[in-house]
Amino acid sequence: MVPDDRKYTQEHEWVQMEGDVGTVGVTDFAANEMGDVVFVELPEVGSEFSQGDTVGTIESVKAVADLFLPVSGEVVEINETVVDSPELVNTESLDDGWLFKVKLTEPEELDKLMDAAAYGELTGG
């Protein structure tokens, strides 16, 4: 169920690496827990953050969740499509529902994130 082509955080986000740029999104588990997502707020392109910083919010009809930066770096691209169609976070959480891309400044932080097996265990398989 949990794809092994990316890393995961305790906050139910995923990072998929391509070169030194990581694409970030929320997991299926998180999307299901939130319910229908109706609003996404993303960081500005060009802004720099440290691992764990709050960089945006995701809101469902009932709930608000902060978006955290899984790895330190500079935001190089955001998914404008998901801003206009927040439901993609529910329907395509691992693909078209990606949120933003970050150019890593501390790549070794990736080692501290969970692999698919560990994340699967965290979320009950």
Partner: peptide
């Protein structure tokens, strides 16, 4: 039950 299929 808070929801079944989804609130929308």
């Amino acid at each position: 039950p808070v929801q079944y299929e989804g609130v929308l």
